[in-house]
């Protein structure tokens, strides 16, 4: 191993005061920083095909298992179970997809990469915006695969294409909002393993104590109350109504309000946490 610096690197030395240019700090640059950081993660996606394949196999498995295992024994008035179930599975998969945000951040922290990013003259929020945006795009990919499988086994946009796309967009927005919760968890725990379990554990009760798989009326009344108050139920109901061409009532607006609220609150907390986080 030679370490002789060749001629071409002789300007690795410091710049003189006259040469020094202060990097500009504007909103446009903050957005570019965010996109730059997002591409760091997106570039890695096709290189880790195993991970991509497993990440898409899981929702496919869920679609098929729920459809064919429970499909025969659960009947929902006014729906074919397929049309009832699929929006619930979409919603659950999208929310679970947010877990990657926390794990990825915890990994970057553990490896000291967050220190490197924090010592750069970039917008501090760009690191988290870039991470959440790249996870949103990855979830979009997962969603597309899942929709294709759902279509193959008979799911349809009964409410038309526009509403179908609207419902899908709403669920992606929820996924993005939950990414910020996961970001806060990933920045707060001590290890990648803790980010993994701490990120996923609470999502099981949240997604099952909801209208995603069975109507809440069938639950014990105290549980039904919890399920009805669950924002995940609101989002699922809104998406389900849009996919099936039913009247969503105020669910769409309530769901949008929840997603916006979660994003604002948790993005604020996560960014504050980030600027104070020491690496481990």
């Amino acid at each position: 191993m030679t370490t002789q610096l060749s001629d071409s690197a002789t300007d690795s030395g410091p710049v003189t005061d006259a040469e020094f240019v202060e990097p500009p700090q504007t909103v446009i640059w903050a957005l570019r920083d965010s996109w730059n950081e997002a591409t760091r993660h997106l570039r890695a996606v096709p290189r880790n095909l195993d991970l991509l394949i497993f990440a898409t196999l899981q929702p496919i498995m869920f679609v098929l298992l729920f459809r064919y295992v429970f499909g025969g024994s659960i009947s929902v008035p006014g729906f074919s179970y397929n049309q009832y179930l699929m929006p619930g599975i979409f919603a659950q998969t999208m929310v679970f997809g947010s877990g990657f945000t926390g794990i990825g951040l915890a990994e970057d922290l553990q490896r000291g990469f967050i220190d490197r990013l924090r010592s750069l003259p970039i917008s501090q929020s760009a690191v988290l915006v870039g991470r959440t945006v790249s996870d949103l795009l990855r979830n979009l990919l997962t969603f597309a695969v899942m929709l294709a499988v759902a279509f193959a086994i008979g799911f349809r946009f009964e409410g038309g294409l526009v509403r179908g796309i609207g419902a899908s967009g709403l669920l992606l927005f929820f996924s993005y909002a939950f990414s910020w919760i996961q970001a806060l968890i990933g920045l707060s725990v001590k290890s990648v393993e803790a980010a993994n379990s701490g990120g996923f554990l609470w999502m099981f009760p949240m997604t099952f104590v909801s209208s995603a798989f069975v109507p809440t009326e069938d639950m014990p009344s105290w549980l039904a109350k919890v399920a009805d108050a669950n924002p995940f139920t609101v989002a699922t109901n809104a998406a389900r109504a849009l996919y099936n061409g039913n009247d969503p009532g105020s669910d769409v607006w309530q769901a949008l309000a929840w997603a916006t609220g979660i994003t604002v609150v948790f993005a604020t907390l996560a960014i504050r946490r980030f600027t104070r986080t020491a690496s481990r």
Binding site: F20, E22, P23, R32, D33, N36, R40, R43, A44, R47, N48, R111, G112, F113, D115, R116, L117, S119, L120, P121, I122, S279
Partner: peptide, 29 residues
């Protein structure tokens, strides 16, 4: 931050990227 370079105790490189991509990333930042 515009004036410093930091190499911490653990090599802070993104191991999913190539060496070149790591360097270009910092350049764009």
């Amino acid at each position: 931050r515009a004036r410093i370079g930091l190499t911490g105790q653990y090599a802070a490189v993104d191991e999913r990227l190539t060496g070149r991509e790591n360097l270009e990333l910092i350049g764009r930042f």
